[in-house]
Structure formats: structure tokens, C-alpha cells
């Protein structure tokens, strides 16, 4: 069989069966460490970057993960995500670097958006590029997947960026077979996407099979929320702008992606455990990023952000 990754039963047999997606991701991690001097894993606290951490463990066992994690903290993260991040880093003995968007705002380097749809999503890019320069990272590993969004479907596994972090989408390096060319010129860096070929369902099935811990906001819980444009928002007056006539109500919800509180809407859900989350994803008629207001700004919202250096 040529499966995406192994089932528990297959793991207990003496013969290792082929597991295409998992082996591909492990192969990519090993290429990064062999070809680059200063790689870093971009860690958001979301399920995709948590999955990357597990795959990196697998790639280098019994050695520890040989690169640090970098979190670009917008200050608008869900508190549950931050608590989870700190626990994970401590448990695995990893190095965590945090850089705050707030610092750039305080220094007057960037201006915060205001009003109804204000988000710090765009401001992350500047902080990320600063961090790449500060530490001299030559490879930034991210959990982006091609099935998420149609501009991402065009992305290479090793995606070369210039010193402004820009993606030259019309002139990408050919990527043939599974050969990864990590040679770059001075000032360039590479964004690396080990789970490019995984779908949302692949990630959830993997989390279920591997029994990977994830932040509690991915599961159904009761939360104070309000409605806007048919989407459900977390009512946190400090971070999420709310009009006076947008009434707060308690709802049983969960989050399908973990972005900023200001741009990530919730879905009504009764999925209290991982098995029911997987079941819910299977039956869903809305795409994963359907609840991400940052993609809805225009049809080319993602492509534009990537050109500017967004991951």
C-alpha cells in the first residue's frame, strides 16, 4: 500500500509500510538541516505548526530538534495558544524566540489599522522580516499547505525570497522530482513548507493518530461571542472591535484555524474531542479559511501578502 501515513496497526508490524506524506515531510526537514546554516521553525501555536514540531522530532530522533522556534506575537493571540506554546517548548526542551508586533507599533515603525475590520495580520510581516535579519536566518520553515488557498497552491516547497522577503511568483525555480535546491545568494532566504501536500483532513487525521496535544480552543467550548457578517466572533473588547449594536451572546463554538482573535471567526460545534473534530471536518461544506477575514479582503489577498514577505 502507498498510504499517506501509517495507521497504528501498521506501526506495530515488523515491516515498515510506505507512508508518502509523512516521509516526504521528514525528508524535507532533513534537507533543510543539511543545506542551511541557520534554519528556524515559524511557530504560530496552530495545529499545522504543532504538526511540524512532531514531524521534526521524527526526522532527527534520537537527537533533539536542531533549530529554534520563532513566534511572531501579534499581541492578539488567544491566551490559550500562548499558554500551550510555553508548555510545549518546556516539555520538549526547545529554544523559543518571540518577537512582538507591539514593539514595532510602539517604535512608530508601523501604524495599526483602526475600525471595524482592523487586524494586525499585515503587521506581522514587518516583524518577521526584522527577526530574519536580526538572527540571520537563511531558512524559515512554515506550516502552510497548498490546499489552503489558491495562491498557496502555487508555492514551491523551497520558496526563495529576496532580502525584502518578496515572493516572485511568476519566476519560481523549477522543482523536479524530490530534489530540493537550497542554494541561495547573499541576502536571500528560503521559506520551506514540509506539509505542502497535506490537506486539512490529513493534518487532523495525523493529530488523531499520533495523539498530538493541541490548544483547547480547537475543541467545542462555551464563549461570549457576537455576530457580524454572518460570522461568529469572540467578544474580547480589548482586541476585537465591536459595534454597540453587536450583541454579546454565549455560544458553544470552536475555532477551526488559530489566527489572531481579530481575524479568526468561530464555528458552531459540538466537537469536544479529536474524533468528532475529524468527523466534522469530513462533513464540512465550508473551507478552512472560510472563517478567516484576512483572506476575504480581495480575491488576491493572499498573493499580495506573500509578495510582501508574509509566510
Amino acid at each position: 500500500m502507498w498510504t499517506a501515513f501509517l495507521t497504528e496497526q501498521e506501526m506495530t508490524q515488523n515491516v515498515l509500510q510506505t507512508n508518502i506524506l509523512e516521509s516526504e515531510a521528514i525528508y524535507i526537514f532533513r534537507e533543510v538541516v543539511a543545506q542551511f546554516e541557520k534554519p528556524v521553525l515559524l511557530f504560530s501555536g496552530g495545529k499545522d505548526s504543532i504538526t511540524l514540531v512532531r514531524l521534526a522530532q521524527k526526522a532527527f530522533f534520537p537527537s533533539k530538534i536542531p533549530f529554534p522556534l520563532l513566534h511572531i506575537d501579534t499581541g492578539h493571540n488567544f491566551p490559550e495558544t500562548i499558554a500551550f506554546r510555553d508548555k510545549l517548548v518546556e516539555k520538549l526542551g526547545l529554544e523559543l524566540i518571540v518577537r512582538n508586533v507591539q514593539d514595532n507599533i510602539d517604535a512608530g515603525k508601523v501604524t495599526e489599522e483602526t475600525g471595524k475590520y482592523a487586524s494586525r495580520n499585515m503587521l506581522q510581516t514587518e516583524t518577521l522580516l526584522d527577526a530574519i535579519e536580526e538572527f540571520g536566518f537563511d531558512a524559515c520553515i512554515g506550516g502552510a499547505r497548498r490546499d489552503e488557498e489558491k495562491a498557496r497552491a502555487k508555492e514551491r516547497i523551497f520558496s526563495v525570497r529576496d532580502d525584502f522577503g518578496q515572493w516572485d511568483e511568476k519566476n519560481q525555480r523549477p522543482e523536479v522530482f524530490d530534489m530540493l535546491n537550497g542554494k541561495i545568494n547573499l541576502g536571500q532566504n528560503v521559506r520551506v513548507f514540509p506539509i505542502s501536500n497535506w490537506t486539512e483532513l490529513d493534518v487532523w487525521s495525523y493529530i488523531e493518530k499520533e495523539q498530538i496535544e493541541i490548544p483547547s480552543i480547537y475543541f467545542a467550548h462555551t464563549r461570549a461571542t457576537f455576530l457580524r457578517d454572518g460570522l461568529i466572533w469572540s467578544a474580547d473588547d480589548e482586541v476585537v472591535y465591536r459595534e454597540e449594536d453587536e450583541k454579546i451572546e454565549e455560544r458553544v463554538i470552536r475555532f477551526r484555524t488559530v489566527g489572531d482573535m481579530s481575524c479568526t471567526a468561530a464555528v458552531l460545534s459540538n466537537a469536544y474531542d479529536i474524533a468528532s473534530v475529524v468527523q466534522e471536518i469530513r462533513q464540512s461544506t465550508i473551507s478552512e479559511r472560510g472563517a478567516r477575514i484576512d483572506d476575504k479582503r480581495s480575491e488576491a489577498a493572499m498573493e499580495k501578502r506573500k509578495q510582501q514577505g508574509y509566510f
Binding site: 515488523n14 515491516v15 510506505t18 509523512e22 516526504e24 521528514i26 525528508y27 532533513r30 530522533f61
Partner: peptide
């Protein structure tokens, strides 16, 4: 494992 098939990332 005692044996592994092609396509797998191993040590």
C-alpha cells in the same frame, strides 16, 4: 522495524 519498503524516510 525488521524491514522497510521504498518511499520511506528512515534512519
Amino acid at each position: 522495524f525488521e524491514k522497510a519498503g521504498r518511499g520511506s524516510s528512515l534512519t
